[in-house]
């Protein structure tokens, strides 16, 4: 399918799949007119992780506030919008329902097209806000819930060619951080701590079968936990910085090598990195280096576009809009959703 991706559009995006309530207006799929995010990190910190019921309650409190902020900052009127894009899934079901029902109410009230968006396609399309996409491409999607290699032959077409068989990379970061007694969220804490240490501990790398593009992080996670326990039992003083650096080295090496393998296999013209874990400075550095030596153009969104936001949902929703993807008022949130169906 050939899409005219240069068509003029104005799309409102809404995102509530986890612990950020977000809304944004994006022009032509590439220009952020406004982006509002209410983060609940502080709310969940005392629980050591996101509590779904509490996240859902906060979304109800913030949803219209954030939509109003996005609308007023964009200077766009309802009648100027071409459609409303909303994250349908995957995510926390109670959280998704708030965004989906708000989007339906808005679409109904203003008689606007409603466009369902897969959250991960949002992370991927955050890159198009930075630079136009060139196909075929490989997207490495790494977040608290996802570790996937997605092959795109054209706009709005997604083929998963590698995925995690157990934990997501972000989950491993959170669990290792907890083992080291670091506060939630653990990813940025490990990143910070690793800068003070060296990767001197030899933690395992799970390559799986020859040529496999899949990932596995549960073995690495257990290895770190076991190492910590063993050292403590022997009465050794732990060097947290070295543990963080070594763990991060192991994750980053596997992610980068497999991404390069995938890129070479499909003769990628571009590599994208997406998702919250792409905020990690080590992973950024390593993948930049690897892409440069292979002369494959690489795009990583700025930090604000790596974590959950609605500009990325509007950017992906723009492609959905151009493809003719529409939902009616019976649209429901879905905790599990296949990206290949989008």
């Amino acid at each position: 399918m050939k899409l005219n991706v240069n068509q003029k559009t104005l799309i409102l995006g809404i995102e509530t799949s986890c612990d950020e309530t977000a809304a944004a207006v994006v022009e032509n799929g590439t220009v952020i007119r406004s982006s509002a995010v209410a983060s609940q990190i502080e709310v969940h910190r005392r629980f050591g992780g996101v509590v779904p019921e509490i996240a859902s309650r906060h979304h109800v409190d913030q949803i219209t506030v954030i939509c109003e902020e996005a609308l007023s900052k964009s200077g766009v009127a309802w009648e100027d919008l071409d459609g409303i894009a909303v994250t349908q899934g995957p995510g926390l079901i109670g959280a998704l329902l708030v965004g989906v029902n708000a989007a339906k109410a808005l679409a109904y009230a203003h008689q606007l097209p409603l466009i369902p968006v897969h959250h991960i396609t949002g992370h991927i399309y955050a890159n198009r806000i930075v630079r136009e996409l060139h196909f075929p491409l490989i997207a490495l999607v790494v977040s608290g819930g996802h570790t996937e290699l997605v092959h795109m032959k054209e706009h709005g077409s997604y083929e998963v060619i590698g995925t995690t068989r157990d934990d997501a990379a972000g989950e491993a970061f959170d669990k290792v951080a907890r083992t080291l007694g670091l506060p939630y969220p653990g990813g940025p804490e490990i990143d910070r701590l690793a800068k003070e240490g060296s990767p001197v501990i030899d933690f395992p790398r799970a390559w799986l079968e020859e040529g496999s593009l899949d990932f596995s992080f549960s073995g690495l996670k257990s290895a770190v936990i076991n190492y910590v326990h063993n050292e403590q039992q022997r009465g050794h003083k732990l060097n947290h910085a070295d543990i963080a650096a070594s763990f991060q080295e192991s994750v980053s090496e596997v992610l980068v090598k497999k991404t390069m393998m995938a890129a070479e296999r499909v003769h990628a013209k571009q590599i994208l990195v997406a998702g919250g874990v792409s905020a990690n400075s080590k992973i950024r550095l390593e993948i930049e280096e690897a892409a440069r030596t292979r002369s494959i153009p690489l795009t990583i969104p700025p930090l604000a576009l790596c974590t959950d936001n609605a500009a990325m949902i509007a950017a992906s929703g723009t492609i959905g809009f151009l493809k003719g993807t529409r939902a009616d008022l019976s649209l429901n949130g879905r905790a599990n959703l296949n990206i290949e169906d989008f």
Binding site: S56, R57, T64, N101, A102, A109, H110
Partner: peptide, 17 residues
Amino acid sequence: YTGLRIGITIAKTMAWT
């Protein structure tokens, strides 16, 4: 809880917009 959030989200969103 879920039922309440659905009705109230729709009601407040429509009332606001």
